[in-house]
């Protein structure tokens, strides 16, 4: 029988890959954000309140380029809409939890916490003594990294912070390939990219992200639906395709 302390220790051990990944990314965020002219307090509050890597980098680039207030909020929230999927997926495992604790855990439900939590919950049921220290440690790592990055932001050479600006597209690319790798998912991404580029050519850039997201998601959905129907009817057709489900 596991004692509470052992369970909490196991949670921290399981969280360690995320802690090591978060810290340097958060440092990078702190450096870039202060480099774009944000104050230490603003940078800290973005990490403390938003706590979503991709959205934070995006928010900073929108602030730096003077994007409109409404477009900034809508686009950033749209990027974070995927968290609805995480809650919906993890939800059933939390049905016995007190409401208050669900809302506490939900704050720390990032991409990586979701990815690890969803695979662990298959082996062990979700218990607060495990999940809360797990999510809390990840959050702390993110905050400490941000503070460190914002602290050294002013003394980092311009060459280095220019190179670090590629951290954002690299992070997005990583998230594309860390996700599901089906033909349908890549089609959704390519459709989103094509529409966003077209929208930028026609000078409706911020709208293009919303357009690309909704159209791309629908295209991916339709392709998956079509492929699963084809697979049901003629199972041999799928065998030669490059992307498995």
């Amino acid at each position: 029988m596991d004692t509470n302390l052992n369970v909490a220790k196991r949670a921290l051990k399981d969280a360690s890959p995320i802690l090591f990944a978060y810290f340097p990314i958060a440092v990078t965020f702190g450096v870039i954000a202060t480099g774009s002219g944000l104050s230490f307090l603003e940078v800290f509050l973005i990490s403390a309140l938003v706590y979503a890597g991709g959205a934070q980098f995006m928010l900073v680039s929108f602030i730096a380029t003077g994007e409109s207030f409404v477009a900034t909020i809508l686009t950033t929230l749209l990027v974070n809409l995927r968290h609805v999927l995480y809650g919906t997926t993890l939800g059933p495992a939390f049905s016995s939890w007190k409401e208050r604790r669900k809302w506490a855990f939900a704050f720390g439900m990032t991409d990586e916490v979701f990815a690890v939590a969803s695979s662990r919950i298959l082996q062990n049921p979700a218990v607060p003594i495990y999940q809360l220290p797990f999510a809390g440690a990840c959050y702390l790592s993110w905050l400490l990294g941000t503070v460190a990055g914002a602290g050294i932001g002013g003394i980092v050479p311009a060459q280095l912070s220019a190179a670090l600006s590629f951290a954002l597209p690299a992070l997005f690319l990583a998230l594309v390939f860390l996700g599901k790798r089906t033909f349908a998912h890549f089609s959704a991404a390519l459709c989103g990219a094509a529409l966003a580029i077209l929208a930028t050519l026609f000078h409706i850039g911020s709208f293009g992200i919303v357009l690309g997201a909704v159209t791309g998601a629908t295209l991916g959905f339709v392709i998956q639906l079509h492929r699963s129907r084809t697979a049901q009817n003629t199972p041999t057709v799928q065998s030669g395709t490059p992307f498995g489900e």
């Binding site: 991709g54 919906t88 997926t89 954002l168 349908a184 990219a193 629908t218 991916g220 959905f221």
Partner: peptide
């Protein structure tokens, strides 16, 4: 749930496209 699972790659694609393939519009 299936549709939502495609929102993430679509948004990421929409962000990456202009970021990587375009400069000054």
């Amino acid at each position: 749930r299936t549709w939502l699972s495609f929102v993430t790659p679509a948004v990421l694609g929409a962000l990456l496209g202009p970021m990587i393939l375009m400069q000054n519009n």
